[in-house]
Amino acid sequence: MKQKEFDFEAGEVLLLDKPLTWTSFDVVRKVKNMLRIKKVGHAGTLDPLATGLLILCTGKKTKEIDAIQAQEKEYTGTFRLGQTTPSFDLETPVDAELPYAHLTEADLQAATAPFIGLIKQTPPLFSAVKINGERAYEVARRGDTAEIKSKQITITAFELMSIALPNVQFRVVCSKGTYIRSLARDFGAALGCGAHLTQLARTRIGEYSLSNALTITDVEALRPPRPEADPAKPPRPVGERHRPVRQGLAYYDASTAAAASAAAEKAPQE
């Protein structure tokens, strides 16, 4: 892949595989700085704890953002049954536990049917929905509550790919504005056991596929040479190169660190 294949200032549609814990704005800012592009925007937000296809438009191609956002989306991921969290994912700790062992595969498969088609869905409070001009997640992270109105969405496909209770792997094809975290909440409520999202990847937007996406490292290889008059900054340590500022993930970071520490303690000593 060579820099000459792209004209970012004139306009490109760039497919990126968003890293875990990065916000969509983290990716936009990183790419804008690396490639020294004046105009960059993303065509559809991904949560920090989601990975997968994030489409960036540069230059004149930013005019296509609305059209790309309106296209059908495909996701794969995992629901954890029997536990709920305020954010409907791993951003916040478990706040309730309910029995799930009595559920059969037939129960789970039957519970998907009411979610296929045109349905109403209420977005999570931990989301970018605006409430009186403020992002809902800002309200949630302060510990406040607010009412969010439901909206109509379309789910074309909701398939359970693998069931190993309490974990259920799924595939969803849906319209713009669908929150998979809300689907986790509603699916768990329909089963009577609660659920939350533990893993999510966006695999497709319209005809754009994750299989064709670049990693952040791939984008770094497209970095244009620095002008001679612009002195290079001292390189940061390798471990710091791809570590953006993360907001709202204190619980996730703490629990992940604790799990890693516990695994290290159990590892056989040489």
Rank of each mutant, 00 (worst) to 15 (best):
G177N: 09
R181M: 03
E159R: 14
K149W: 00
Q152H: 10
T178Q: 04
I155M: 02
Y179W: 05
A164H: 14
G177H: 06
A157S: 12
A157W: 00
N167C: 12
N167I: 06
L165F: 11
V168F: 08
G177M: 06
M161H: 02
Q152R: 09
Q169A: 15
K149A: 12
K149L: 02
T178R: 01
V173D: 04
Q169Y: 10
K149Y: 00
S150H: 05
N167E: 15
A164G: 10
I180S: 00
T156D: 13
Q169K: 15
F170P: 05
V172D: 02
F158W: 11
M161V: 10
A157K: 14
Q169R: 15
V173H: 06
K151H: 13
Q152V: 10
R171Q: 12
I153M: 01
I155R: 02
M161L: 14
F170T: 09
N167R: 13
Q152L: 08
T154S: 03
S162L: 13
A146L: 11
P166A: 07
I180W: 01
Q169I: 09
S162C: 11
E147K: 13
A164Y: 06
K149I: 00
I155D: 00
L160A: 14
L160G: 14
S150L: 01
R181H: 03
A146S: 12
K151F: 00
I163G: 07
G177E: 09
A157N: 08
A146P: 12
L165Y: 06
A146D: 10
V173A: 12
L165W: 08
I148W: 06
I153P: 00
I163N: 05
V168Q: 09
N167K: 12
R181Q: 02
F158E: 11
I163K: 06
N167A: 11
E147Q: 14
T156R: 13
I148T: 08
S162W: 10
E147N: 09
F170H: 06
R171F: 08
S150D: 11
S162G: 06
